[in-house]
Amino acid sequence: MTRPTKLNPERGDARTRLLEAARDVIRRKGFNATTVDDLCKAAGVTKGAYFHHFETKEALGVAAAQFWAETTGAYFADAPYHAPEDPLERVRAYIAFRRALISGDLAEFTCLVGTMTQEAYASHPAIRDACAHSMLDHAATLEPDIALAIAARGMEPEWTATDLARHIQAAIQGAFILAKATGDPAQARSSLDHLARYIDLLFDPAEPSKDQ
């Protein structure tokens, strides 16, 4: 959900370095194609150190999803989109913030848990559940602002703040998939532009024409 910090094999303990390696290598190669050798090389640790911390590749995948949730959660908690006073402006600023992150190599801005979910949802239920926890918890951080925006405008929609928060995440994940399919980050930015327009129409619909 955010751009990674560059892996530094000299920083942190072996487990942390392996999780950082998983974050970066899996986004680049995919979960199934990533090997223990890949992770050990990227982290600068031995296979003995790997198996000391992770008995199976599935255990590594679950831990990587949890690590992603922890690190990106802290990153987004400190992000500038929380600054506007109007809750709807905070939602708009969130989408603009996510759009601004879409640049450079695909592996630098796409989502680790989204990538792993696509590969492991049926074969590794534990990884799927850890990824779902990460995505849904992040979506939930938007719910208070959406609920406040609904209340401030006296809206009584058929949908809920939870529905919209999760739809926003679905749109962002879909934008990442489109960028991967085309090899073009601009496709993802365009998708988020449409998402922003959707939010505008949802909360501030145009007045009906007098001719209607």
Rank of each mutant, 00 (worst) to 15 (best):
I95T: 06
E58Y: 10
T117V: 09
A59E: 14
F76E: 10
L195E: 00
F203K: 13
T141M: 10
V45F: 04
V113M: 03
A149C: 08
T182S: 11
F67K: 00
T115K: 08
S191P: 01
D211W: 12
E207L: 14
A42P: 02
T72V: 14
V91K: 00
K6I: 03
Y75C: 13
V25Q: 03
F54R: 00
D204M: 07
A188I: 00
A74T: 09
T56V: 10
Y121K: 11
F176M: 11
P185G: 07
P87M: 05
F31A: 11
E89H: 14
V25P: 00
C40D: 01
F67Y: 15
K6A: 10
K57V: 02
R92D: 02
T34M: 05
G154M: 12
A83C: 05
D163Q: 09
L112A: 03
I172W: 01
A22R: 01
A74K: 13
P87Y: 05
A147M: 08
R90L: 12
F109L: 07
Q187D: 08
A122P: 01
L192W: 03
P4K: 07
R27D: 05
A149L: 06
I172G: 01
R15H: 04
K57S: 10
I95H: 01
L202D: 08
T115P: 03
A188N: 00
A170I: 10
G183C: 03
F97E: 11
T34V: 04
E55L: 05
A120I: 02
S209D: 15
Y121V: 04
E20Q: 15
D105C: 08
K210I: 14
A186R: 12
A179I: 00
A161C: 13
L88I: 10
G44V: 04
E10P: 01
P144Y: 09
Q66P: 03
A206Y: 12
P84W: 06
M1P: 02
G44F: 02
T2F: 06
D37F: 08
A64P: 06
H133W: 07
T71D: 05
